[in-house]
Nucleic acid binder design. Structure first.
Lengths: 208, 208
DNA sequence: ACCTGAACACCGTTCAAGT
DNA sequence: ACCTGAACACCGTTCAAGT
């Protein structure tokens, strides 16, 4: 029951709704990727004329933004408890879990501008942790922006497979890549190393 | 038919060349972005029938890959001189300079799989630096993969404007974003902080 | 060997018209 | 107010035919 959006006058199924359009689009994206989403296919899934969508969504870009906001609103980071390093680790883990739930959408969103908005719980949660860590107020935004960009790169590379592909390369080209049996463990190790790197960067940047 | 000269710079002459197709495509991408590139527009620029392109390039995906390889081959990292921290900083700076030369192409490539290939000078250069830094041979690939993903995220966010937008947010919402006069200095500061973070992560990961 | 025209199966979106 | 059909201006790609 996360979203407290509007819920005003929710008709029954028959009527076309902005929310209904977004959730149907999300289902298509989860199944086949953002590239396979089209206004016409979405209309077909909803059993409606393609042009009917334009009475609820101005265009395809707005549609994608709406779907993104639908799941961005689900992110409720827990930023309390423990020292700030633990808070940041938990924060990163929560966000990564969200990315794993909808990898197609997240990979697309991370690669495009305007994914993070200043009002998002993501940004307010992150800047809060940085402030409690002791980052000077004048530098919280810059530090948060850099950390966001770095971590987005990790999630993006993890989501599109680049990370897994490169991480198993053997130093000597004679041997092939390692077996995929330890892929999950390796992925978690990569994640831990990535977050430790970000934490080390913050620590090195704190005023002494 | 006179020309037997095969200097592959098929400009507007007559003969269509794979290289000529790639460079023309790169020009279009630099001007208007990857999204504005189409086989038909590219053919129009080359003064040729759209279908003629398919005799030299199998499809659009291969076209984009060819353009990417065209500029990936230009990256010749200088990995010698100084301690490994200096080598890594120089390496990152060189790669960032390449990204600034063709931002539209790089932003698109960073977001898609297969941008980094194991034979690329990028990967061999990076793994070489990590090895000299003392990263155990069994972990060079994983560490290099994570660092690549993190740094890609930085370049991506820098290229699509997300980084600059978030970095200037003020802690108190009352004040607007800072003036853009110091944008370049801020960008360089962000870059320095990003690379320092990566270095700190490596240092923390080195065997004691 | 290289190039081309016509055609197919798609797109997003506008607009005037229906109810 | 909401929905629709027809139409416009595009796509990538196949195929048979030209030279």
């Amino acid at each position: 029951m996360a979203t407290s959006g509007q819920a005003s006058g929710g008709r029954r199924d028959a009527r076309l709704t902005e929310q209904g359009i977004y959730t149907a689009a999300l289902r298509l994206i989860d199944a086949d990727g953002v590239g396979a989403l089209s206004m016409r296919k979405l209309a077909a899934v909803l059993g409606v004329n393609p042009m009917s969508l334009y009475h609820h969504v101005p265009n395809k870009a707005a549609l994608l933004r709406g779907v993104k906001n639908l799941i961005a609103a689900q992110f409720r980071p827990r930023v309390d408890g423990g020292i700030w390093q633990e808070q940041l680790y938990r924060f990163a883990r929560d966000f990564r879990a969200l990315a794993h739930q909808h990898p197609n959408l997240i990979v697309h969103s991370l690669a495009s501008p305007d994914f993070i908005e200043p009002e998002d719980p993501f940004w307010t949660g992150l800047t809060g942790i940085l402030t409690r860590a002791g980052v000077p107020a004048t530098e919280v935004a810059a530090v948060g922006a850099v950390l966001t960009s770095l971590f987005s790169g990790f999630l993006l590379a993890e989501g599109n497979g680049t990370l897994g592909r490169l991480a198993v390369l053997q130093p000597t080209p004679t041997a092939g890549p390692a077996t995929a049996s330890s892929a999950d463990a390796g992925g978690d190790r990569n994640f831990t190393f990535a977050v430790q790197t970000l934490i080390a960067g913050i620590e090195a940047h704190l005023p002494r």
